[in-house]
Amino acid sequence: MLLMINGGSSSIKFALYKQSEIPEKILSGQISKIGFKDIKFSFSESNVPEKTSFPAIVNSYASAIAYLISWLEKQVDLKKINAIGHRIVHGMQYLNPSFITPALVEELKQIIPYDPDHLPNEIQLIEVFKQHHPDTIQIACFDTAFHQTMPRVAKLLPIPRRFEKSGIHRYGFHGLSYQYLLQALERIAGKVAANGRVVLAHLGNGASLAAVHHGSSVDTSMSFTPAAGIPMSSRSGDLDPGVAWFIMKTEHLSADEFNHLVNHESGLLGISETSGDMNDLLKQAEKDIRAAEAVDLFCYDIKKRIGAYAAALGGIDTLVFSGGIGENAAIIRQSVCEGLAFLGIELDSKRNHANQDLISTDEGNVSVRVIPTDEEGMMAEIVNKMITDKAKQ
């Protein structure tokens, strides 16, 4: 068996797979809203359509990890797991997935300042699983690796060149999701479509877009950290540096306090003043102008990115919506695509509201698709190949 662990800033997703040529999912779930009052544990089995959900009695990320391991050990014999795959959000110079060694863990600890919201939790997950199951192979799957193909001009940040020596440039994230979506696009629409000019929109609590050509990343909205790009649930997205200076100065904020503000108090939550959850905002939009404006800004910024990436790609052949919002919110897809007919993007309203795979009109020049993403599934493929290749050596 293979176990995939996807540690977020306030969640832990997991998926268990039967090892075969194509890994077969047995069980999956997550602990969500860690650090909040309503922490939930949910899971589903592959042969049972309904999801089981209940409150999780945990009060920290460390206790959530212990809770997850204890629960997993009651479901399966973890000694039968051949490898554990971990999603590592920030990989710096790592271009390929890597077997986790003490040296790699130490390197990850050194770059915690690059991603203080994710790396400490991901390192903690690695170390706790190591303590409980020291002989099990662990593999790091880096979310930044997909974007290493971006041209240098897309990676450069317009700050003094000396900072580049410290590794400060555009990295991009959601790489495992984008890698999966390209594979899924090829299965659904063929190689020509997957190798064409594609814009991928991963829209969830964390949200980003990527421009892809010939199967390689050309540009992406997230930058040095996942806080950049379009507005997200509680992340600001791109921000005028003068605003940062003004807020820190007038509010007397430390660097850590400002980092918390732009990652946990901003975005949809900051604009609406009520919620960072898109479902909540859509329900409130008719009665609350703040919620309506949060939704409008989200869609407007995505629309601008699509236009920018069409320019970077020299046109667009396929637009893919994914992530919790992208897969389920027809009204968001509709709002994003309104006014983009000049690019050849035209939605079929019935297809869109039915959440069909292909939601564009037959007359439109751009195929617009809804494809559910599967980061854990992508990780399982990567891990399976690595341990299979290792066994052949």
Rank of each mutant, 00 (worst) to 15 (best):
H252Y: 05
C299T: 12
D301V: 15
A211S: 07
V153H: 09
L203F: 13
H260D: 12
H214V: 10
D277Y: 09
L78N: 06
E127D: 06
A341D: 15
L269E: 02
P231V: 08
K165G: 09
P113L: 06
S335G: 14
I139A: 05
M4P: 00
H133P: 04
A66T: 10
L200H: 13
P49C: 06
M232H: 08
S236A: 13
E375T: 03
G229N: 03
L297E: 10
G339I: 11
L157S: 10
L319H: 11
N279G: 12
F142Y: 11
A255G: 00
S221W: 01
A244T: 13
P97V: 07
F54P: 00
L239A: 03
P120Y: 02
G364V: 11
P102R: 02
Q75A: 07
S254P: 01
S9V: 07
Q356M: 14
L239H: 09
G172H: 02
D256L: 08
S60R: 05
L104N: 03
Y309I: 07
I126S: 02
S223Q: 07
K37F: 11
D115F: 02
I188W: 10
G344T: 06
S217A: 14
A140V: 01
H169C: 11
A211C: 04
P55I: 05
H86A: 09
R305T: 06
Q131S: 14
A62S: 11
H90F: 09
I359D: 04
G314Q: 09
Y180A: 01
A193H: 10
I316R: 05
Q179M: 11
